[in-house]
Amino acid sequence: MLNYTLRRLLFAIPTLLVISFIIFVILDLAPGDPTGQLPLTIPAEVRAKIRESLGVGEPIHIAYFKWVRGFFVYEPLYWLDQIGITIGDPSERARIISYATRGPVFDLILERIPQTLWVVGLSYVFGILIALPIGVISAYKQYSWFDQLGTFISMVGFSVPTFFTGLLMIVIFSVQLGWFPSVYDTTLDVNSWDTFILQVKQMVMPVAVLALYNASQISRFMRASMLDNLTQDYVRTARAKGMSEKVVVLTHVLRNSLIPVVTVIALGVPTIFSGAIITEQIFRVNGLGQLLIIGIQGSDFPLVQTLTFIFAILIVLFNLIADVIYGILDPRIRYD
């Protein structure tokens, strides 16, 4: 397993380099201009100067080289500096700079991670916690009213777009009832019981919207996987052994059904980091998803390039993790 993992990691390096280059070329070919959003009162000559100062329009191989050097050399060195290990001259670190903020892209990303993890990550966790029991019961009592209701809610959760459920929640809970804030306060510092309550309050709606969406997806997987396993002969064997239903369902069926579900869950983890663009926008959570969309709108290529590449790394990594988990959970799979 270790050899397999190492081999996969080694293969991932050229894959990622190719991906980064493809992203770079696509962004380079994409129309758009970082000064395009400035007011028209700024004349074209000034815009040309601004573009020049940003380094827009450099030949692609030079721009790509600079970015790769920034991402793989200067950024790691910078963070080593921060923890006290200095290699080379710290003043030489040309970090990747965003066009729009003129600040280092990595600082922006780090600033965004907490709220994204809190909101999107928590909604993923809640989604899973809700989905698993629903999936198990739905499958165990297939076609019962519980299953029908679960199917209906999943369909709703899956097919109704989050911008609709989000707005609906704002209208009901913020405008009409006034229970929860419609705007997420990213500067809230949780340091007391009251601020904790505030934090919970402002997280309720975005987390609920996303959790519903995640739960409906995962509960379907769980149900299908349970149904596959419930009809397997080994389940009958377990019953024939005289095991209680609890043991049969929770030990035999659930553990086997979880194998594919766990990999689906692992593969979904990168989507947490890419944030939930629409939901973040609606509740103004301003996490990584919102950062990406602002970057795209403003043609902030260094930001978009870096973010998409980080997502690519996460996707490659979690694919590997999913495969490894599969290997650990399912004794029939051996990678070596």
Partner: peptide, 22 residues
């Protein structure tokens, strides 16, 4: 002063005119 950015114009306007948060 808190100057919060993001969302869309309808949402920011709502937060002043309807919810009174801003």
């Amino acid at each position: 002063v808190t100057l919060k950015g993001g969302g869309d114009s309808a949402a920011t306007t709502r937060s002043v005119l309807e919810t009174g948060e801003f």
